[in-house]
Simulated scan of single mutants.
Amino acid sequence: MIVWTIANQKGGVGKTTTTVTLGGLLAQKKKRVLLVDTDPHASLSYYFGVDSEELSSSVYDVFVASKHLTKDRVLDCLCSTKLDSLFILPATMALATLDRRMGNQNGMGLILKKAMDLIADEFDYVLMDCPPVLGVLMVNALAACRRIIVPVQTEFLALKGLDRMMHTLEIMAKSQQREFDYLIVPTMYDKRVNAAVDAYQTLREHYGDKVWSGVIPVDTRFREASQAQTPPSVFSPRARGVYAYDKLLKHIQSLDKKS
């Protein structure tokens, strides 16, 4: 099972769109895919019409039951989607209390990794959507993954947020004594806007080959797909944004084969 975490310490840069689109593409390629929502705002869950506040269990219960986790307990928390091979582990607002309630407990940073290890034979890919805040949830998602995908909106303020994310990865690498493989993905790119072009060039200058050579363009079909509660690759398979994400997917898979 391959785990990718989609993270950035700035909101509104395309994390959930990236998670949903890559997950949908993988599911359409006959892969069994789990999307994990670790954001208390639950945007990923609501994308698929899952109101986790009305569910009997969610990713919150995985944390609460961390000392007694079993494979069945984790699987019981999953919800299906319109795609047969695409599932979601939904979030709930209760996640916002985890740092205060459990943040100082030993082993809190490895709970998601433990949960994913328990269900490793059930899925080909797991994609984790992170909150834009460094805390127990992001630490868990980073610790559990093989690769980090960092969507960055091609505008000045988003580049400042990226600096914080890179600092976080440095801290995590030291504490876990491991290097993190990460890929920066320029999103919401509009070649007609000078600020977007400048931001992309700045990304390439500062981060070199850690930046994907392609871009995810601005595409209204993403918004329409979310309204239809359907992955963009299913809703509008020929959309330019979907085409870009398919190229990104192939690139990440090629990187995984080399590592």
Rank of each mutant, 00 (worst) to 15 (best):
L44Y: 02
T5K: 01
M128I: 15
D39R: 06
A228R: 11
F87N: 06
G135W: 03
L35Y: 04
D72G: 13
L203V: 04
D117N: 15
D51V: 07
G14D: 05
V185W: 02
L169V: 02
L157R: 11
M102C: 06
Y46L: 14
V185P: 09
T154W: 00
L134D: 12
G241N: 06
R178V: 12
R146E: 14
Y189Q: 02
F48E: 05
T220K: 12
M108F: 12
L55E: 08
H206G: 02
G103P: 07
L110F: 13
S58T: 15
F180L: 04
K67L: 13
R223C: 09
S66E: 12
V139S: 11
L69N: 12
H251G: 12
G241A: 08
I252K: 03
A158H: 11
L134W: 11
T38W: 00
S52N: 04
P40I: 02
K29Q: 15
E155P: 07
L69M: 10
L127R: 05
K160V: 13
L26D: 04
I119A: 03
R32I: 00
T70G: 04
Q28A: 01
V234G: 05
G109F: 13
Q229T: 05
L110M: 14
S213T: 12
M165A: 09
L255I: 13
D209I: 14
L134R: 10
T97P: 03
L78Q: 05
P132D: 02
K258F: 11
H251T: 12
V33H: 02
R238L: 12
A244S: 15
R32A: 11
E54G: 13
D129V: 01
Y46C: 08
G24I: 13
H68N: 14
R178G: 01
S80Q: 12
G23M: 11
H206I: 10
T187L: 09
G161C: 09
E53Y: 02
I111A: 07
L255G: 06
K257M: 13
S226C: 08
V193Q: 10
G11K: 03
L34Q: 06
L157S: 14
S52L: 04
K71E: 15
Y245T: 02
M93L: 14
L249P: 01
L75D: 05
G49W: 03
K113W: 07
L249V: 03
A239K: 07
K82G: 14
Y245Q: 08
T187W: 11
D219G: 03
S58D: 10
G208Q: 09
